[in-house]
Design a binder for these strands. Sequence first.
DNA 1: TCTATGATTTAGAATTAGTCTAAATCTACA
DNA 2: TGTAGATTTAGACTAATTCTAAATCATAGA
Lengths: 136, 136
Amino acid sequence: MGKTETDNTTGQRLTPQREAVLQVIREREDHPTASDIFEAAKRRLPSLSYATVYNSLKYLREAGLVREISFGDCASRYDGVIDRHDHAICSVCGKLVDFDLPEAGELMRAAARMSHFKAESVHLTLTGICPDCRES
Amino acid sequence: MGKTETDNTTGQRLTPQREAVLQVIREREDHPTASDIFEAAKRRLPSLSYATVYNSLKYLREAGLVREISFGDCASRYDGVIDRHDHAICSVCGKLVDFDLPEAGELMRAAARMSHFKAESVHLTLTGICPDCRES
DNA sequence: TCTATGATTTAGAATTAGTCTAAATCTACA
DNA sequence: TGTAGATTTAGACTAATTCTAAATCATAGA
């Protein structure tokens, strides 16, 4: 009784499975999909199941330890860098790159004013052509 | 021969099916998924097939008539507003609202500078709490 | 230490989104 | 008309994600 949906008083929470998933995401430079993560994490924890990866991702997302990013391809990607940043995606090769727009704070306030939302975070996506693809 | 992949010299292009899909998207206030669109468009064109909806969406997207937006739920949503704009998503109820940030032009240049991409477009997503949900 | 309880994991089934294929249709045009 | 290329259709297929039920685990209290 008196238990809320964000109850945190019982359970071990950051379990070995969840930790493995987190480490995989953090160690990678790129932004892996759930199936990339499953394969890599299974090497450390061979009994790991696919559903646990999804459960772990859900937990880690809610705990603010990873971020989910998704484009129109029905395969979310995960990002272990916690601090606020933005993404640039190449319209030619699909490469995904992180960068940080310093004026994000003002941006968030401006967006909140326009939308009448109480702001929590902003995220900017630039679509364009990456340096590598520009050469051809 | 001498035909390129973006050839536009033959074919009728904006077919009745594609037009029906476009109209469905434009008439709706919200941002429907492919399956929402399929159901609504099928009412006008009963022979319509699911694959045609995807084909049409692909064509309309490439023609710049609709925009695909996706969040972490593996079900892209479509937006029929042609002019550039941004989105605010409510972290409580999931509502998706359009708004336009006037400083998007500068923003795009700044983002291009930071990422070293050749800019094509920017899109900003604000996460927060919508006016309705703020009341509770 | 034992046990009850709730949290978590597991395997696999089920669901859902999206793509592919091949045959049928359609359109424009020679 | 005849043909070529574009498009549509139905349905199979694949991949992503969620669900379910049973097994396991960790913790707190007896």
